[in-house]
């Protein structure tokens, strides 16, 4: 087993394990958020293995560094300690839904089988900030601008929502 594959398995196990821990943690919301941080950081490790260096750095800075800190912040702000949320009752039609989902997934995998590409040979600079930046500001500049508009809308929305009361 190559070193790359070994590290892939390590990070994959970490990511999947902490994701499971996040979903199954019924008592402690902060601990669930912290499990998700582990998932995000392991995913960043996998991104590095897949030669997406810039994406890995952004993943840690934005997801682990800002988004999840925000989650933890809100949980602490609301002071949700030891919340008791009864798990959903498993009704038959939910089980049926899960079965349907499994069938759909199996169909998707069957359709995909044999069409999966092999890893291409990529240049050394692939995924570095220069290359991604060039792609971002030439081929995808319209999408980039649209995202900036969306972020502006999100900022305004968040400010309006977080205000204590809107004056009538």
């Amino acid at each position: 087993m190559s070193a790359e594959l070994f590290f892939f398995y390590v990070f994959a196990a970490l990511a999947a394990g902490s994701a499971l821990a996040m979903v199954s943690n019924l008592r402690n919301t902060v601990a669930a958020a912290l499990s998700l941080v582990v998932t995000m950081v392991s995913l960043a490790g996998i991104y590095v293995l897949l030669r997406a260096h810039l994406v890995a750095a952004v993943q840690i800075m934005v997801y682990a560094g800002a988004v999840l800190v925000l989650f933890v912040f809100v949980v602490m702000l609301l002071n949700l300690r030891e919340d008791v949320f009864p798990p959903a009752r498993l009704r038959p039609f939910k089980l049926a839904g899960a079965a349907l989902g499994a069938v759909g997934l199996a169909g998707f995998l069957a359709a995909l089988a044999g069409h999966v590409p092999d890893m291409a040979a990529v240049p050394e600079s692939f995924g570095g900030y220069r290359e991604v930046g060039r792609a971002l500001f030439t081929d995808y500049v319209l999408a980039f601008e649209l995202v900036s508009l969306l972020l502006l809308a999100a900022i305004v929305g968040a400010v309006v929502l977080a205000k204590r009361r809107l004056e009538p």
Partner: peptide
């Protein structure tokens, strides 16, 4: 970026 990520 590494320093910023670790700082985060």
């Amino acid at each position: 970026l590494f320093i910023f990520a670790v700082g985060a």
